[in-house]
Amino acid sequence: MRISTMTLGALLLAASATPAFAQDAPTAPPPEITVNATAAIVSDYRFRGISQTDKQFAFQGSITVTHASGFYVSAWGSSVTDYVVAGGNARQEIDLIAGYSKTINGIKLDGGVLYYFYPRDKTPGVHSDFFEPYVDISTTLGPVTAKATVNYAPKQKALALDQTGVGSSFNSRSRDNVYLAGDFTGAIPKTPFSLTAHLGHTFGTSWLASSFGKGKEQDGYTDWALGVTATYKVLTLGVSYVDTDAKFNNLVGAVESKSGVVASLTASF
């Protein structure tokens, strides 16, 4: 979801630069409801540094409806690999989001609830859907935008590490999970390029947002990424290096937490 905002200072500057005769032709007020959408292809769908597609391509898309008051609802979807996610037969991930954002003195506050839904996961006794409240704060200083995020998933059956019987000693334990992250974007002036950096840490364990492999738990891990993007009209091309200190093996033994280069092409509407 990408939302562009203009600070009050920028609005006042634009107003002061407007010729006096423009007052005779007032512009229409902004719409009460706006709709934004994206479509993307990525070389690897990484969720908090962990590949959800066995390091294969994924198709993704989103739609967001925003009210002028700051309330919004959004849906985001991606293809996933069945033996990477907990259920073992899921092919899609759909994230349903409801939240509210407000900008005060150049600082944007955003909070809501995110629900992870795997529509084809029908394995008896396996739980993969879960919800996660989130709060983030962001600000822009010149060409640099910084954002801090905290996500908290309360104890839920879907966060149990092993729901397949492989590690039955902790098969039935419901768990909670906290994710803290910082993201930075720096636009290179007079060019279409931006530099990006990400640092996140998972506190606690879960199937989708944790490191787990070879029958052992790892109580938390760190993920990070460095990248560059180039934007041309509605298209954005991105390349980033992603890594973690996790040890995550999927159901067929592949290590999904290894470092890698991820490329993406996104169209925004």
Rank of each mutant, 00 (worst) to 15 (best):
K214F: 02
S268G: 07
F130K: 07
T27Q: 12
E256V: 06
A15M: 00
L195V: 05
L159S: 07
T266M: 00
T7Q: 04
T66C: 02
M6R: 13
V242P: 04
A25Y: 14
D82Q: 13
G106L: 01
P189G: 04
T34Q: 09
I104S: 08
T205S: 12
S74V: 05
D129A: 14
H67D: 13
A75K: 06
F184D: 03
S240A: 04
S4L: 08
E217M: 13
F248M: 09
A37N: 09
P154C: 10
N177G: 02
V242A: 07
Q56W: 01
K190S: 14
G99E: 02
R120A: 06
P124T: 01
V261Q: 04
F184A: 15
Y72C: 07
A267M: 14
G49T: 04
Y116D: 13
Q23T: 13
F212H: 13
V166E: 12
L159Y: 06
D129K: 09
R48I: 06
D121Y: 03
K216C: 04
T5K: 09
A28I: 13
D121W: 01
T222L: 09
V80A: 08
S74M: 10
P124W: 01
V144M: 14
G106W: 04
F47S: 13
G142S: 03
P26H: 12
I63V: 15
S268P: 02
T229A: 12
N250W: 03
H127D: 14
V135R: 03
Y116H: 15
P26S: 12
V228N: 08
T229L: 05
T27C: 05
L96Q: 05
S259W: 07
Y241L: 08
D223S: 10
D24Q: 12
E256Y: 00
D162L: 01
V261S: 05
G220F: 01
G77I: 04
L96V: 15
